[in-house]
Simulated assay, not measured.
Amino acid sequence: MSASVFIDGDQGTTGLEILARLFGRQDINLITLPEALRKDAAARAVAINDCDVAVLCLPDEAARQAVASIRNPRVRVIDASSAHRTDAAWVYGFPEMSPQQSGRIAQARRVSNPGCYPTGAIALLRPLVEAGCLRSDAPLSVHAVSGYSGRGREGIQAHEGALAHEALSFQHYGLSLQHKHVPEIQLHSGLQDRPFFVPSYGSFRQGIALTIPLHTAMLRRPMTTRALRDLLAQRYRDHRHVQVLDAAQTDAMTRLDPQALNGSNDLQLAVFGNDTHGQILLSAVFDNLGKGASGAAVQNLALMLGLGSASDSGHKNDTLHPMEHAA
């Protein structure tokens, strides 16, 4: 018997990607509302209370209202907004975050999908903090560039619409240092102090390249670039969606391509360094619409419905490229 899944906000960037990834599956019965009822509170309340899992692709306040409208205790929720990412009552939907996390997600009633940038930052930082390698009070800076789809429909229209010729090819933002992803990064990375976060958009549709520079003085004990790389490789060795590049691969790289993993649910981590100068560069490359949003939501959905393996957090069909399902 197929599970019923209601996508609230299915016409937004994340919602459309989730629909594309789930299209044609026989083990899921998708519920969406016709255009005339998408903003009808009563119709949305009926739909959300009549499904097995609701996936919320909404602004934060709308997501909170949607959750408040749930009266049916059997309804489970995946919230793709940032409304509940630091809420202790919700399970953080990053299956690879810890050995136990996929099991927690599988059993959870409420799952908060991670933010795109935090996915890369947490994947790099948390293992180092937990292993006692990186000081939790280190003065960290996270730098990242995302495709313009990270701005949602507004960003896509700006770069693909009638006024696309006026769009900036590159722009930093979040200059008030109040970006909503920072508390999420700090909490789930296990950091004592608030990191600097410097986000930006480039003139490409999707993909993220994220970097975190480290001085060896930030480490709790002397460690080489190779040792840190080996630690991450060991940590993610059983996770099919996370790849840690080896020494030969990193030595051969001269640049990071933020679009390298577009269309996938994969996360590629690398550790570059110059041990002579005591400098290390951590990096993550992934699709902001894949592992950074819709792909992660589908991965969590597979876990919650028992359609994937809790050991590798994967199912053959849980991360299919959108175009493989497109009509």
Results as ranks from 00 to 15, higher is better:
A3D: 09
A3C: 05
L16A: 15
L16V: 12
E17K: 09
I18V: 15
A20D: 06
F23C: 15
G24E: 02
G24Q: 02
G24A: 08
D27R: 00
I28W: 06
N29C: 15
P34R: 07
A36F: 03
R38G: 01
R38H: 06
R38Q: 10
K39N: 15
D40T: 04
D40P: 10
I48S: 12
D52I: 07
V53A: 00
A54M: 06
D60V: 09
Q65E: 15
Q65T: 13
Q65D: 10
I70S: 01
N72R: 08
P73I: 09
P73R: 10
P73N: 03
R74Y: 09
R76D: 03
D79V: 00
A80M: 13
H84I: 04
R85H: 06
R85E: 00
R85N: 12
A88E: 13
G93E: 02
P95W: 09
E96T: 14
Q100I: 13
Q101E: 08
A106T: 04
A106I: 04
R109E: 06
R110T: 02
R110K: 14
V111W: 02
P114Q: 07
Y117P: 08
A121R: 04
A121W: 07
L125E: 04
E130C: 10
R135Q: 05
S136A: 15
D137C: 07
D137P: 09
V145F: 04
S146A: 12
G150R: 06
G150M: 09
R151W: 11
R151H: 14
E154L: 14
G155T: 08
Q157S: 12
Q157W: 09
G161Q: 01
H165M: 13
L168S: 13
S169H: 15
S169W: 11
Y173P: 09
Y173E: 12
G174V: 00
L177S: 11
H179M: 05
P183V: 01
Q186S: 14
G190Q: 13
R194G: 07
R194M: 12
S200E: 00
Q206T: 12
T211W: 10
I212V: 14
P213F: 02
L214R: 06
L214A: 03
L219D: 04
R220S: 06
M223F: 08
T225A: 15
A233E: 07
A233L: 03
Y236M: 02
R237N: 06
R237P: 01
R240Q: 13
V242G: 05
V242M: 04
Q243V: 06
Q243R: 14
T250R: 10
T250W: 00
D257P: 01
Q259C: 11
A260D: 11
S264Q: 02
D266Y: 11
L267T: 14
N274G: 03
G278P: 01
L281C: 09
L282R: 00
S283F: 05
N288D: 04
L289D: 00
L289M: 14
L289P: 00
G290F: 00
A296P: 02
A296V: 05
A297I: 10
L301I: 12
G306V: 03
L307A: 04
G308C: 10
S311V: 13
S311I: 14
H315I: 04
D318F: 05
P322R: 02
E324I: 01
A326L: 15
